[in-house]
Simulated assay, not measured.
Amino acid sequence: MTQTVALVTGAARGIGLATARLFHAEGRRVVMLDRDGAELGRVAKELEGALPMICDVSRPEEVDAAVRQIVVKCVRLDILVNNAGVADFGPIADTDFSRWRRVMETNLDGVFLMSQACLPLLSRQGGAIVNIASISGLRASTLRVAYGTSKAAVIHLTKQQAAELGEVGIRSNCVCPGPVNTKLALAVHSPEIRAAYHDAIPLNRYGSEQEIAEVIAFLASEKASYVTGQVIASDGGFDSTGVGLPALRPARTRQKP
């Protein structure tokens, strides 16, 4: 596998970094994109031969510049993992248009822009796109009007890609992580929320970044050579158990008649 190249966006931390490390362990050359240049530079040193690139995937000019560098330095591209995303939760009433666009431009526009820019490289020998959505794209929940909608759109974009790009040998699949023990989750999930998730998840725990990376790596590999257009919830069974968590619902005040 030493000649294959895998590109991971949002690779400076979390699921993206875990995926980059797994691809590197498989013997692939890894291209790591992130807009946090300082953290990206630090973690990329761990992976010999990795190519770190500072890039905001929501900006077409930065995406195009990054792909031009990949053409020069790597010649080919076999795998694209669209992992970069932002988590912004809030009530519908408090989500103004600028907040909505901040979420959409990274979570949805970024997936579209990166995939489109990489098509010429991926189509040369066939390749795999793995888009990272979320369980919030499969089931509605409070406080996720922008985030959940962006991830639902990524799910459908994945199917559009599979329907159209199969003819040039590109497979496209989507992974929907459930609650994962990332630094972000640890920071924003209160003990009450964590307990509620544990009660609602059949496996009774959060997932790990490594567990999600394993699913991504499988879908990107030749072991999944006849798999495309699929949406895999790596969520401990959370999607099977119903909708909503009381701990995530804002307090309601009743107006007197």
Results as ranks from 00 to 15, higher is better:
T4Q: 15
V5Q: 01
V5T: 14
T9L: 11
T9H: 08
A11K: 06
A12N: 11
A12T: 08
G14C: 04
G16H: 07
A18D: 05
T19I: 08
A20V: 04
R21M: 03
L22N: 04
V30H: 02
V31F: 01
L33S: 11
L33D: 06
D36H: 07
V43P: 01
K45M: 14
E46Q: 14
L47D: 05
L47N: 01
P52N: 02
M53K: 06
R59E: 15
V63L: 03
R68F: 00
R68G: 15
V72M: 13
V72H: 10
K73A: 05
V75E: 08
N82W: 03
N83Y: 01
G85H: 04
G90P: 03
P91H: 11
P91F: 08
A93F: 15
T95D: 07
F97G: 05
S98I: 14
R99L: 13
R99K: 12
W100S: 01
V103D: 03
M114E: 10
M114S: 09
M114T: 11
M114G: 12
L119S: 09
L122P: 10
G126A: 10
G127L: 02
A128F: 04
A128Y: 01
V130W: 06
A140G: 12
A140V: 09
V145H: 06
Y147W: 14
G148F: 13
T149K: 05
V154T: 05
I155H: 08
H156Q: 13
K159E: 15
A162T: 09
E164Q: 14
V168W: 06
V168N: 01
I170M: 13
N173R: 14
N173G: 04
G178K: 07
P179M: 07
L184H: 04
V188E: 03
E192T: 11
I193Y: 03
A195C: 03
A195K: 14
P202M: 07
Y206F: 00
F218N: 07
S221K: 13
S225K: 14
Y226P: 03
G229F: 09
V231F: 08
G236H: 02
T241Y: 00
T241A: 12
G242Y: 02
G242T: 02
P246G: 05
R249F: 06
A251D: 09
